[in-house]
Design a binder for these strands. Structure first.
Lengths: 135, 135
DNA sequence: CCAAATAACTTGACAATCAAACTAATAAAT
DNA sequence: ATTTATTAGTTTGATTGTCAAGTTATTTGG
């Protein structure tokens, strides 16, 4: 258990470093790419929901979104029923960035699992499913 | 492979959120606790090495270390042979913080793996070992 | 209908960060 | 051995990410 704990911490650290270097190559900041990632994987959403998912306040997000709009990565559209809200969604350029980032992630997953046999990958997948449920 | 990739991303996200909330409870910042963690798990080291491990510049670290010294979590001692260098190490209070944080991590690991059978834990451990080697 | 809650925005104040310039010490080259 | 280049750490100035608190517009609940 102790060693598994250390391995998880090490895994997390290495993933952080990897993410940082991959993001740097895009020319956008970590916070910016993270925002794109959330929108890309969950679809358009309100400011409030996006802020919650990112773990930041809506005040911070307002500024962040402003920049991403200027970059042409996202657009703001009024919410159809709630006029207080606005929907944030990716432009085609934002979608392209998300897809690119996703491909990097997939490539990493392939790279780090290349010495695992099919049975281990199966157990690993099931274990991640169970662990993710317990957070 | 695709689903494993998504599970890893989800795992990473959840671990990030967990870390953020656990760190917030300590009253110290994420960057500060991270510094303590590295010193706690690798022992005293020079500024340069610490900066490299944290993925920041020595300029940033100088400021960061200054604060941690003021908090009484770390101390600076001159390097015995290289007079350009400084060794940074945890005080007993810093060590206590590290131990506390470590216990939180261990508890989390126990919590998220509680529905895994011993054989899965074994495979999971081996898989993490192999994956960590491939980064 | 009105009070309370909610969504987004604005502003002011800090952290954290980097790059570049700087000092001191060591290592390398000739 | 003397000079040159490299390395360790610090300082400074600018930028980014962040929050808390206050603002406005809208919706919801009593």
């Amino acid at each position: 258990m102790h060693s598994l704990n250390n391995l998880i911490i090490e895994f997390y650290d290495k993933l952080s470093s990897w993410e940082q270097s991959v993001v740097k190559d895009t020319g956008y900041s970590l916070a910016q790419v993270h925002t794109i990632e959330v929108l890309g994987s969950h679809g358009p959403m309100r400011m409030k929901e996006l802020a919650d998912r990112l773990g930041i306040t809506t005040g911070t997000l307002t500024v962040q979104v402003e920049k991403l709009v200027q970059f042409g990565l996202i657009v703001r559209t009024p919410h159809e029923v709630d006029r207080r809200s606005i929907l944030v969604e990716l432009t085609s350029e934002g979608t392209a960035l998300h897809k690119h980032h996703n491909r990097m992630h997939l490539q990493l997953t392939e790279d780090i699992t290349r010495h695992l046999d099919p049975e281990s990958i199966k157990v690993l997948t099931q274990s991640f499913e169970k662990m993710n449920r317990e957070f």
